[in-house]
């Protein structure tokens, strides 16, 4: 989650001469870096918070919020397996977001060839039971991320909010809100193919696209009609849960990775 802290600890322990807890490898600043940058896209266009756009179903929309928890983020190569983070809160609002979290995170990794990114969408049940008030503000599980379901003491996994014009009056007068969570909507260890060949001293960016149209109108799989089902929290009733399940599964499948 916070590799710079990790490095500091490695260095500190080296200084103190404490050799009992040597990690499997020691990463230092000169090692290559990979940057994961998350984007929402619709029909090939990047959508930022506040942007107006028309989706593949011709709905006029404007994006208000997209935040999500990812856990166990791992880069896999033929022989290497490098853990990038235990948990990350991605806020598409990016740098300067109200939460203080970002849409882009960088990690130091060993040089080599990688062909897969593996991550879980949401939080595993032990992390979902975290007490957010004991976490420092910089931690993705603190209250700072505004992803805590306080009445149920657990976290929202994906929060997507937008405004939609359903009656063509040129006003975005309806809300679309998907706040999905619950242990049953945790999607563990999803793998995404990539080709990343990273030499020493290099820095490379992986663009992780979340495709709006594949969430709501996938070519294969269940669709969500935004004109009739605009407002969902995961646990209002069975219908909402069913929609949240479709949303979550489509969301997982809507993700693809692009290099440069």
């Amino acid at each position: 989650m916070n590799l710079s802290k990790y490095i500091l600890i490695v260095l500190l322990s080296a200084l103190i001469g404490c050799k009992s807890e040597v990690p499997p490898f020691e990463l230092i600043e000169q090692d290559p870096k990979v940057v994961l940058t998350f984007n929402l896209v619709s029909q090939g266009q990047e959508i930022a918070v506040g942007d107006e756009f028309v989706d593949s179903q011709q709905w006029p929309l404007t994006l208000s919020t997209l935040k999500m928890y990812l856990s166990d983020i791992i880069l896999l190569g033929a022989s290497e397996e490098t853990k990038l983070a235990d948990v990350e809160l991605v806020d598409i609002a990016g740098k300067g977001s109200a939460t203080g979290f970002n849409s882009s995170y960088s990690y130091i990794i060993p040089e080599g060839d990688y062909d897969q990114l593996r991550m879980s969408i949401g939080l595993p049940s032990d992390l979902n039971a975290t007490d957010p008030t004991v976490m420092p503000a910089s931690d993705p599980l603190s209250l700072q991320g505004a992803m805590y379901w306080d009445w149920a003491t657990m976290y929202v996994f994906i929060m997507m909010e937008a405004r939609i014009d359903t009656n063509s009056d040129l006003e975005y007068d309806d809300n679309i809100a998907f706040h999905t969570g619950l242990d049953t909507l945790f999607r563990s260890e999803r793998s995404y193919a990539l080709t990343l060949d990273i030499p020493a001293f290099a820095k490379d960016t992986l663009h992780i696209d979340i495709d709006w149209d594949k969430i709501f109108h996938p070519a294969d799989g269940k669709r969500i009609d935004l004109s009739t089902t605009p407002f969902f929290h995961a646990n209002v009733d069975e219908d909402a849960l069913a929609a949240s399940r479709i949303f979550t599964d489509n969301f997982v499948k809507s993700i693809s990775i692009r290099e440069q």
């Binding site: 007490d131 957010p132 008030t133 503000a137 209250l143 700072q144 505004a146 805590y148 306080d150 009445w151 149920a152 003491t153």
Partner: peptide, 28 residues
């Protein structure tokens, strides 16, 4: 809470502070 979903009194404090129908301020 009525459904017993909040595990400690400490965590319960978050709920009225965040709830838009109650104090609507937020802990932070």
């Amino acid at each position: 809470m009525s459904e017993g979903g909040v595990k400690t009194l400490e965590l319960q404090v978050i709920a009225p502070l965040e709830n838009e129908d109650e104090m609507a301020l937020g802990v932070i």
